[in-house]
């Protein structure tokens, strides 16, 4: 069954050629094909395809209302697509629940940073740890030793990540006390706590001051060097140009172009979509 699914995924990858002109040797971590979603009479996403190569930082750009966030929602199945397929790590995932997709290693963040403001920064981090013994209430009562031991290990790991993003001194504060930029950092740090393969970042630089934007970019590059793959929606073109290996462009719910940042910058169709005729 798994082999069949893998073959199917490969088939999809082969069909991806018109848009995803990637060398065949680079394995694709995420492949979405012909995704469609309508809200009433409006086609928010219309036959959109996207590939994210393993180990890359892939950008997704487009004017406001292009359908980028809806595409994120479709990829993570927060919204069920009307049509199309999503293959992650060789497995179809469009039939899975959002939490199952996260468990498979694909984590998303939100356009407006959504930290759990009534929990502490550390609790926000610990929440994202996977497969903890203490997530089962029976184990809390009957395997307290194992629960406490794991909690301690997860706390150490969370502290390491918080330290790397400069939030460790805020660990015990309520997340609601963080500034907008710190919330963005916490959201990304929390996503890493899942130990994902792919992180979908929805506008990580939006509403963040330039110094913090630089920090966020440096962290993303570092984590990418450590083997993490990113798909990033971003309006800040400096961020896109400095981070991304490859950029997908959407306009009016459809694929418009794909290429390296430099190719995209010079693409007349893209310029037209952004600036008008």
């Amino acid at each position: 069954m798994v082999d069949e699914q893998r073959t199917e995924a490969k088939g999809l990858k082969a069909e991806a050629e018109p848009f995803g002109e990637q060398p065949a040797s680079i394995p694709q971590l995420l492949v979405a094909r012909e995704l469609c979603k309508s809200f009433g009479g409006i086609r928010a996403v219309d036959r959109v395809s996207i590939d994210v190569p393993q180990g890359s930082i892939t950008g997704l750009i487009g004017p406001n209302g292009a359908g980028k966030t809806t595409l994120f929602n479709l990829l993570s199945n927060f919204i069920q697509p009307d049509r199309g397929e999503v293959i992650f790590n060789g497995q179809p995932i469009h039939h899975l629940q959002p939490h199952q997709i996260a468990q498979q290693g694909m984590v998303r963040t939100f356009q407006v940073a959504r930290v759990l403001s009534r929990l502490s920064v550390m609790e926000n981090m610990l929440l994202a740890a996977q497969n903890q013994t203490g997530e089962n209430f029976w184990n809390v009562w009957f395997r307290p030793g194992q629960t406490i031991k794991e909690e301690r290990q997860q706390r150490e790991y969370a502290s390491e990540i918080l330290e790397s993003v400069g939030l460790v001194h805020m660990a015990q504060s309520y997340a609601g006390a963080l500034s907008g930029g710190q919330r963005k950092l916490l959201e990304i740090a929390r996503a890493l706590m899942v130990r994902p393969k792919l992180v979908l970042l929805d506008e990580p630089a939006a509403g963040v001051n330039p110094t913090l934007i630089n920090q966020i970019c440096e962290h993303i590059l570092q984590w990418n060097r450590d083997g993490l793959t990113f798909l990033i929606i971003e309006h800040n073109m400096d961020v896109v140009m400095s981070l991304c290996d490859r950029v997908w462009v959407m306009a009016e719910g459809q694929n418009l172009a794909v290429g390296t940042p430099t190719e995209i910058q010079q693409n007349p169709q893209v310029l037209e979509a952004y600036l008008g005729q």
């Binding site: 927060f78 199952q100 929990l119 929440l127 899942v194």
Partner: peptide, 17 residues
């Protein structure tokens, strides 16, 4: 902790698996 997270934001809790 999961229950408290659900109380606050179900989508985030889902997104974290």
């Amino acid at each position: 902790r999961i229950l408290k997270a659900i109380r606050e934001d179900e989508d985030v809790t889902k997104a974290l698996g």
